[in-house]
Design a protein around this nucleic acid. Structure first.
Length: 224
DNA sequence: GCGACAG
DNA sequence: ATCTTGTCGC
């Protein structure tokens, strides 16, 4: 089998996007949220060839029963470039978000918040654009150093990057690899970590992102 | 200069 | 993310 590299990302484009991230990251506000959490949404995207299917699942809190599901399906315009995931997925996620009849108090995103090279992961990016509280729950680390947490559910360890405590690893299930939690916007690390653990009921992933992940996969059959 | 690199 | 088979544990 041949080794085929991805089509090279335009250096000029990457440079301008990097600038945009630096500017937008200055708008990110990390603070204890002031809302009363009554509804929260999880979002995620799946791909079918050159098309992207983004989903938003609205849940009631703390019951976590599903209130609404919306999605949007269109061709993708950006390739995946580590550190620039938001420019590939956020546009379509915003389209799906607009379809929600009820807007959530908080958005949980499949990816990172401020635990990003320039402090603007997709969760922060969406938070700034929507001016909504957001947080990220990722399955893999992007930047930073950390020690593995104890094997018991609820165990956590800090993730540092440039001497800043930007995220936490969190064991949401006994003896299962931890998830990586970070605040996105209008949110703080402690609350984000608590909510990630609290909404992870029977699975490794918190219900909001787990369900968004599930429907993103399930809805593929519908769009064909 | 050499790796690492969300989804 | 997607491709892709069997396998281990609750």
């Amino acid at each position: 089998m041949y080794y085929r590299p991805q089509p090279p990302a335009d250096p000029e484009l990457i440079r301008s996007l990097t600038e945009r991230q630096k500017e937008m990251s200055q708008q990110v506000i990390i603070q204890k949220p002031d809302f009363t959490l009554r509804t929260l949404a999880g979002c995620d995207s799946s791909f079918i060839g050159e098309n992207i299917l983004s989903v938003f699942v609205l849940l009631r809190y703390p019951e976590l029963d599903i209130l609404e599901i919306q999605y949007n399906y269109v061709p993708v315009e950006m390739p995946y470039v580590p550190g620039f995931l938001a420019f590939r997925e956020a546009p379509n996620l915003l389209k799906a978000y607009e379809k929600l009849e009820t807007k959530p108090d908080l958005i949980m995103v499949d990816g990172h918040g401020i635990s990003h090279p320039r402090r603007l992961g997709i969760a922060s990016y969406l938070g700034v654009l929507l001016q909504k509280p957001t947080m990220g729950v990722a399955k893999k680390i992007l930047v930073g150093k950390y020690e593995l947490p104890a094997p018991e559910k609820g165990s956590l360890t800090p993730i540092f990057h440039r001497d800043e405590h930007i995220a936490n690893t969190l064991r949401t299930k006994d003896k299962v690899k931890p998830v990586f939690v970070s605040p996105g916007h209008l949110m703080d690390l402690e609350t984000a970590t608590r909510l990630a653990l609290e909404t992870a009921r029977k699975h490794k992933l918190p219900e909001p992102t787990r369900l968004a992940d599930h429907y993103a996969e399930e809805l593929k059959k519908e769009v064909r």
